[in-house]
Simulated assay, not measured.
Amino acid sequence: MESGPAIFAGMVFCLFGAGLLVWTATRARQRRPVAQGVSPIASATAAGLAAMISLALGAWCFTRL
């Protein structure tokens, strides 16, 4: 009964993190801005960091099963 919310939260974090990481890498590879009005390096770094944190939180949720 308690593993249901952990599975749901883990999947949400992992899907969001993976999607953000793929989107950021695609935008950076095409040399397009990740965020408007911000330095390309800073925005790609911040988005990549947020994606990695989200993936780590998803992995942590799956260890709680």
Rank of each mutant, 00 (worst) to 15 (best):
L57T: 07
G4C: 12
A47C: 12
F62Y: 10
F62S: 09
A9L: 09
G19E: 03
T63A: 05
G17S: 12
I7P: 00
L21T: 08
M11L: 15
F16C: 07
I7Q: 02
R32H: 01
G48N: 14
A35P: 10
P40A: 04
R32G: 00
A44N: 10
A35I: 15
L15T: 15
A42Y: 11
C61P: 00
G58A: 04
S3A: 06
V38F: 04
A6S: 13
F16L: 07
T24E: 03
G4L: 11
T26P: 00
W60D: 12
I41C: 03
A42F: 14
W23Y: 04
L65I: 10
M52K: 02
M1H: 14
Q30P: 04
Q36D: 10
G17C: 06
V22G: 00
I53R: 00
L57A: 15
R32I: 02
G37D: 01
Q30N: 10
L55K: 13
A50N: 11
A35C: 01
A50P: 10
T26Q: 15
R27N: 08
A50E: 13
W60Y: 12
Q36E: 11
R29C: 02
A35E: 14
F8D: 04
S39G: 14
F62T: 07
A35Y: 10
T45A: 09
G19A: 05
R64E: 08
R32N: 01
F8I: 08
G10M: 08
M52E: 05
G19I: 11
T26G: 15
A18H: 13
M11G: 15
V34P: 01
G10R: 06
R64D: 08
V38C: 01
C61I: 00
A50Y: 11
A47S: 07
F8N: 07
G10Q: 07
L55S: 12
R27M: 14
A59N: 03
L49Q: 05
R27E: 13
A44F: 00
A9F: 15
V22H: 11
W23A: 07
Q36T: 09
M1C: 03
L49H: 08
A6V: 07
S54W: 11
V22M: 05
A47Y: 04
G58S: 02
R27L: 15
G4N: 09
T45C: 02
G10P: 05
G19M: 10
L65R: 09
T24H: 00
P40S: 04
A25C: 07
A56N: 02
L20G: 04
F62W: 11
A28E: 12
A18P: 00
V38G: 04
Q36H: 04
P40H: 05
R27Q: 08
L21E: 03
A42N: 09
G19V: 02
I7T: 12
L21Y: 09
I53P: 01
S54K: 03
C61L: 02
R31A: 06
G19H: 03
L49S: 09
S54L: 06
I53D: 00
G48T: 15
A42G: 05
G10S: 11
L20K: 15
A35Q: 05
G4V: 14
V34G: 00
P33Q: 01
C14A: 12
C61R: 07
A18M: 08
F13R: 05
A50M: 12
S54R: 03
L65H: 09
T26Y: 13
F8A: 15
M1Q: 12
G4R: 09
S43A: 02
V12E: 10
